[in-house]
């Protein structure tokens, strides 16, 4: 049994289908070809033992290992802890137009982290490592803002990131 569809309505439905199809194609193209994905690494960690070398995911987020460093492949990695009410280390420096990988773990409750005017944005869920791969195109100082309510001091939770020209960037061992 067919339903009654007005000719004008039929045209409109074709247009809707085209709009939806185009949106899908664009998003899937950027995902599949340009590798544009949201942070989705599904990696667990024991949030209550970040300071210890043992346990699930142990060692990576010990105090001495926080900050900016290069992994064996030469990629810049920023290892951070989110804890009420700050990001540690509180100041970091990375070069402009260079791939950077953020690895962040929560020490306590749910946090978020975002840098204005960039696509650096992730939730930091206790029990999981949040990983974001990005590169910054603008020079200057930007705040790293906690963007998920984490308690009464939430509005005070932020750190700073300095994006510097490539030739001014120096990697300092340990805390950067």
């Amino acid at each position: 049994m067919a339903i009654h569809i007005d000719p004008l309505e039929r045209k409109w439905i074709i247009m809707i289908a085209a709009i939806v199809l185009l949106t899908w194609v664009l998003i899937i193209y950027y995902a599949a070809v340009q590798n544009v994905h949201p942070p989705s690494n599904v990696e667990v960690i024991d949030s209550s033992r970040l300071h210890l070398a043992s346990g699930v995911g142990g060692g990576e987020f010990m105090e001495d290992n926080l900050g900016v460093h290069r992994d064996p492949d030469g990629l810049l990695v920023v290892t951070m802890v989110a804890a009420r009410y700050g990001f540690y280390p509180q100041h970091i420096e990375v070069p402009v137009n260079t791939p950077v990988r953020f690895r962040i773990a929560s020490f306590d409750v749910l946090h978020g982290i975002m840098i204005p005017f960039s696509n650096m944005n992730t939730m930091v869920v206790p029990g999981y490592i949040a990983e974001v791969n990005t590169s910054f195109t603008k020079l200057g100082d930007f705040p790293l803002i906690c963007d998920e309510y984490c308690g009464l001091g939430h509005a005070y939770m932020y750190g700073m990131i300095k994006i510097v020209p490539k030739d001014e960037f120096k990697l300092i061992a340990g805390v950067n």
């Binding site: 939806v20 899908w24 998003i27 995902a31 949201p38 942070p39 989705s40 599904v42 992730t122 939730m123």
Partner: peptide, 19 residues
């Protein structure tokens, strides 16, 4: 989308349904 505990493929599937 911004959560670490869900893999990208599932998010993409939900994107398709969302539209």
């Amino acid at each position: 989308y911004m959560d670490p505990m869900v893999a990208a493929g599932w998010k993409l599937l939900h994107m398709i349904g969302t539209f």
